[in-house]
Amino acid sequence: MAARWSLTWRDRPPEEAALLNPAFCGELIARATREYERLRAAAFPLPLGFLVLPLVLHPPTLAKLPGRANTTFATWSADNEALLVELPERTLRLRPISREALLFLTQHRALMVDAAGLRTGEKPIRLTAKLATVTKDVDDIRRAAGLLGRWFANQGAPVQILQTMGVTP
Protein backbone atom coordinates (compact mmCIF):
# COMPACT_ATOMS: atom_id res chain seq x y z
CA MET A 1 0.00 0.00 0.00
CA ALA A 2 2.82 2.44 0.80
CA ALA A 3 4.16 2.09 -2.77
CA ARG A 4 0.85 3.42 -4.09
CA TRP A 5 1.31 6.71 -2.22
CA SER A 6 4.86 7.05 -3.46
CA LEU A 7 3.66 7.38 -7.07
CA THR A 8 4.09 10.77 -8.69
CA TRP A 9 0.90 12.81 -8.87
CA ARG A 10 0.52 12.32 -12.61
CA ASP A 11 0.71 8.52 -12.13
CA ARG A 12 -1.99 8.35 -9.46
CA PRO A 13 -5.58 7.60 -10.43
CA PRO A 14 -7.22 10.99 -11.20
CA GLU A 15 -10.05 10.65 -8.68
CA GLU A 16 -7.60 9.78 -5.88
CA ALA A 17 -5.28 12.62 -6.86
CA ALA A 18 -8.21 15.04 -6.82
CA LEU A 19 -9.61 14.00 -3.44
CA LEU A 20 -6.40 13.14 -1.63
CA ASN A 21 -4.17 15.98 -2.78
CA PRO A 22 -2.10 17.65 -0.05
CA ALA A 23 -3.73 21.06 -0.44
CA PHE A 24 -7.28 19.81 0.09
CA CYS A 25 -6.36 17.32 2.82
CA GLY A 26 -4.21 19.98 4.44
CA GLU A 27 -7.11 22.41 4.39
CA LEU A 28 -9.20 19.86 6.30
CA ILE A 29 -6.53 19.40 8.97
CA ALA A 30 -6.06 23.19 9.13
CA ARG A 31 -9.81 23.66 9.70
CA ALA A 32 -9.80 21.19 12.58
CA THR A 33 -6.67 22.82 14.01
CA ARG A 34 -8.12 26.34 13.81
CA GLU A 35 -11.36 25.36 15.55
CA TYR A 36 -9.56 23.40 18.27
CA GLU A 37 -7.21 26.34 18.92
CA ARG A 38 -10.12 28.77 18.97
CA LEU A 39 -11.95 26.85 21.70
CA ARG A 40 -9.05 25.49 23.74
CA ALA A 41 -6.47 28.24 23.20
CA ALA A 42 -4.00 25.38 22.88
CA ALA A 43 -2.27 23.44 20.12
CA PHE A 44 -4.25 20.72 18.32
CA PRO A 45 -2.69 17.41 19.46
CA LEU A 46 -0.74 15.90 16.57
CA PRO A 47 -2.21 12.38 16.97
CA LEU A 48 -5.72 13.82 16.55
CA GLY A 49 -4.61 15.39 13.28
CA PHE A 50 -4.30 11.87 11.89
CA LEU A 51 -7.99 11.17 12.67
CA VAL A 52 -9.36 14.05 10.60
CA LEU A 53 -9.06 12.50 7.14
CA PRO A 54 -10.27 8.99 8.08
CA LEU A 55 -13.35 10.50 9.72
CA VAL A 56 -14.37 13.12 7.16
CA LEU A 57 -13.35 11.40 3.91
CA HIS A 58 -15.23 8.17 4.65
CA PRO A 59 -18.81 8.82 3.46
CA PRO A 60 -20.57 6.49 5.95
CA THR A 61 -18.67 8.02 8.88
CA LEU A 62 -19.14 11.56 7.56
CA ALA A 63 -22.89 10.94 7.40
CA LYS A 64 -22.93 9.83 11.05
CA LEU A 65 -20.80 12.60 12.55
CA PRO A 66 -22.82 14.70 14.97
CA GLY A 67 -24.27 18.01 13.92
CA ARG A 68 -23.04 19.76 17.05
CA ALA A 69 -19.72 19.82 18.87
CA ASN A 70 -21.39 19.41 22.27
CA THR A 71 -22.61 15.90 21.40
CA THR A 72 -21.51 13.43 24.03
CA PHE A 73 -18.44 11.73 22.63
CA ALA A 74 -18.77 8.43 24.51
CA THR A 75 -22.43 8.06 23.52
CA TRP A 76 -21.74 8.86 19.87
CA SER A 77 -18.85 6.37 19.85
CA ALA A 78 -21.00 3.63 21.40
CA ASP A 79 -23.85 4.33 18.94
CA ASN A 80 -21.44 4.14 16.00
CA GLU A 81 -19.28 1.26 17.11
CA ALA A 82 -19.66 -0.53 13.75
CA LEU A 83 -18.11 2.44 11.93
CA LEU A 84 -15.32 2.78 14.46
CA VAL A 85 -14.27 -0.86 14.10
CA GLU A 86 -12.70 0.06 10.75
CA LEU A 87 -11.25 3.40 11.89
CA PRO A 88 -7.83 2.10 13.02
CA GLU A 89 -7.26 0.48 9.61
CA ARG A 90 -8.49 3.60 7.73
CA THR A 91 -6.20 5.73 9.88
CA LEU A 92 -3.22 3.56 8.99
CA ARG A 93 -4.11 3.54 5.29
CA LEU A 94 -4.48 7.33 5.22
CA ARG A 95 -1.42 8.02 7.37
CA PRO A 96 0.82 8.71 4.32
CA ILE A 97 -1.78 11.15 2.98
CA SER A 98 -2.08 12.90 6.35
CA ARG A 99 1.71 13.15 6.59
CA GLU A 100 1.93 14.56 3.07
CA ALA A 101 -0.77 17.13 3.91
CA LEU A 102 1.01 18.13 7.13
CA LEU A 103 4.30 18.48 5.28
CA PHE A 104 2.59 20.64 2.64
CA LEU A 105 1.08 22.87 5.35
CA THR A 106 4.34 23.28 7.24
CA GLN A 107 6.35 23.97 4.07
CA HIS A 108 3.87 26.73 3.21
CA ARG A 109 3.93 27.94 6.84
CA ALA A 110 0.16 27.48 7.12
CA LEU A 111 0.70 25.24 10.18
CA MET A 112 3.52 24.80 12.64
CA VAL A 113 4.35 21.62 14.50
CA ASP A 114 5.90 21.86 17.93
CA ALA A 115 6.08 19.70 21.04
CA ALA A 116 2.50 20.65 21.99
CA GLY A 117 1.04 19.74 18.58
CA LEU A 118 -0.29 21.63 15.57
CA ARG A 119 -0.70 25.39 15.56
CA THR A 120 -1.83 27.83 12.94
CA GLY A 121 1.26 29.09 11.15
CA GLU A 122 2.36 32.57 10.16
CA LYS A 123 0.68 32.23 6.74
CA PRO A 124 -2.63 30.49 7.54
CA ILE A 125 -4.92 29.22 4.83
CA ARG A 126 -7.83 31.58 4.18
CA LEU A 127 -10.56 29.22 5.26
CA THR A 128 -13.35 31.73 4.75
CA ALA A 129 -12.69 32.23 1.03
CA LYS A 130 -15.62 31.27 -1.18
CA LEU A 131 -14.71 29.15 -4.17
CA ALA A 132 -16.36 29.73 -7.54
CA THR A 133 -17.39 26.11 -7.92
CA VAL A 134 -17.83 23.70 -5.07
CA THR A 135 -20.02 20.67 -4.48
CA LYS A 136 -22.27 20.00 -1.52
CA ASP A 137 -20.10 16.97 -0.71
CA VAL A 138 -16.97 19.11 -0.45
CA ASP A 139 -18.84 21.69 1.66
CA ASP A 140 -20.02 18.90 3.98
CA ILE A 141 -16.46 17.56 4.32
CA ARG A 142 -15.10 21.03 5.10
CA ARG A 143 -17.81 21.68 7.70
CA ALA A 144 -17.16 18.28 9.30
CA ALA A 145 -13.43 19.00 9.62
CA GLY A 146 -14.17 22.20 11.55
CA LEU A 147 -16.70 20.34 13.66
CA LEU A 148 -14.08 17.73 14.56
CA GLY A 149 -11.78 20.45 15.84
CA ARG A 150 -14.55 21.88 18.04
CA TRP A 151 -15.73 18.43 19.13
CA PHE A 152 -12.25 17.26 20.09
CA ALA A 153 -11.71 20.54 21.97
CA ASN A 154 -14.75 19.71 24.11
CA GLN A 155 -13.38 16.28 25.06
CA GLY A 156 -10.84 15.04 27.55
CA ALA A 157 -7.25 14.12 26.89
CA PRO A 158 -6.27 13.09 23.34
CA VAL A 159 -5.37 9.59 24.52
CA GLN A 160 -8.97 9.11 25.71
CA ILE A 161 -10.31 10.20 22.31
CA LEU A 162 -7.98 7.83 20.51
CA GLN A 163 -8.82 4.92 22.82
CA THR A 164 -12.55 5.54 22.49
CA MET A 165 -12.17 5.43 18.73
CA GLY A 166 -10.03 2.30 18.88
CA VAL A 167 -6.86 3.97 17.63
CA THR A 168 -3.65 3.53 19.59
CA PRO A 169 -1.33 6.53 19.85
Rank of each mutant, 00 (worst) to 15 (best):
I97T: 13
L105D: 09
D137H: 01
R99N: 15
A41Y: 10
D140M: 10
P45R: 02
P13M: 09
L53F: 06
P14A: 09
A153R: 01
A32Y: 11
A3D: 15
R34P: 00
T61N: 11
G26I: 03
A23P: 03
P14N: 04
E35Q: 11
R95T: 12
A69E: 14
S77P: 08
S98E: 02
T72F: 11
P60R: 00
T164A: 15
N80I: 05
R38A: 12
R99V: 04
P14W: 03
A116D: 14
G121C: 00
E37L: 02
F104L: 05
A30M: 06
P96Y: 00
R93A: 15
L57I: 01
R99G: 11
F24T: 03
E16F: 08
A30Q: 15
L94D: 08
D114K: 08
I125T: 06
P59S: 04
P60Y: 04
R90F: 12
T164L: 10
D140Y: 02
L84W: 06
E122H: 00
H108Y: 03
Y36F: 14
R109T: 11
W76N: 12
T120M: 08
T8Y: 11
T133Q: 07
R38M: 05
I29G: 03
A101L: 05
R126N: 14
T164C: 13
L94F: 00
R31F: 07
T164F: 04
A115I: 14
F104P: 02
L131D: 08
G156A: 13
I125S: 05
V167I: 12
L92C: 07
Q160Y: 04
Q160G: 04
G49D: 06
G121P: 09
P22H: 02
T133I: 10
L111I: 04
A3W: 13
L19E: 06
L53C: 01
R126G: 09
K130P: 01
I161N: 10
Q107R: 13
L87M: 02
T120E: 13
K136A: 11
V52M: 05
T164S: 14
R10L: 12
T128P: 00
V56C: 08
E27A: 12
A30E: 14
K136G: 05
L131Q: 13
D114G: 10
M1D: 10
N21E: 07
L84H: 02
M112H: 13
A116R: 14
T72A: 13
D139W: 04
E81K: 15
T168R: 12
D114N: 15
F152K: 07
R93E: 14
L65E: 07
L131N: 08
Q155I: 01
